[in-house]
């Protein structure tokens, strides 16, 4: 995959921010709202937003099976915040996420919006810190065998497992492109 087509799940949430980060990098990109759209992409970003809302739309528009299958077959996927929850197989309040990743996640784990925050995050492989925006963010309680690429307050906030990447914060909100670039160059390269 020399020039992969990156899809952004566009059912609800900040998908437009992800698309504009991809645009700033010059990557091919498209919104994904159906199985048909999903067939056209080589990799997928699941954005921030309300995981409850997105999962309901995934089920109503019969995308669950196709998503699970593509991800299990190695389609590179990057989830931010709600997107990380959607990939997980154990979610605190029993939410039926896709379960494609052996991750245990607690929703809104820092508290309500009054506890939302921003902080500098040191990411493995990047020289300068990333400003992490955490909005009613989840906590990864158990990352299983995943590689932890960044932590905050001793909790993993950016993890990677083979072709899957998950962040509990929102690099896309500030137009931060380094993590997206890392995803495309390292996880999407060399795929069929």
């Amino acid at each position: 995959m020399v020039d992969p087509q990156i899809g952004v799940l566009a059912l609800q949430g900040d998908f437009a921010a992800h698309l504009s980060v991809l645009e700033s990098c010059g990557y091919r990109r498209s919104p994904v709202r159906s199985c048909l759209d999903l067939d056209q992409v080589d990799a997928l970003i699941i954005p921030g937003g309300e995981s409850t809302t997105m999962l309901k739309m995934i089920d109503r528009y019969e995308m669950r099976e196709a998503l699970v299958k593509r991800i299990r077959n190695g389609m590179p996927v990057f989830g931010t915040c709600a997107g990380a929850i959607i990939l997980a197989d154990r979610v605190s309040d029993g939410e039926m996420a896709l379960g494609t990743w052996d991750l245990q996640v607690e929703r809104n784990a820092y508290g309500r919006q009054s506890e939302s925050f921003e902080a500098d995050i040191k990411v493995r492989g990047l020289d300068e810190t990333v400003r992490g925006i955490f909005i009613r963010a989840p906590i990864i309680v158990d990352a299983g065998g995943a590689e932890v690429m960044a932590t905050f307050a001793d909790r993993p906030v950016l993890v990677r497992n083979n072709t899957m990447l998950a962040a509990t914060f929102h690099p896309e909100l500030l137009g931060e492109a380094r993590i997206h670039r890392w995803f495309v160059e390292n996880l999407c390269a060399g795929k069929e």
Partner: peptide, 9 residues
């Protein structure tokens, strides 16, 4: 940022 998360909703 929270408003951004509500978009499309």
């Amino acid at each position: 940022g929270l408003a951004e998360m509500l978009k499309g909703g």
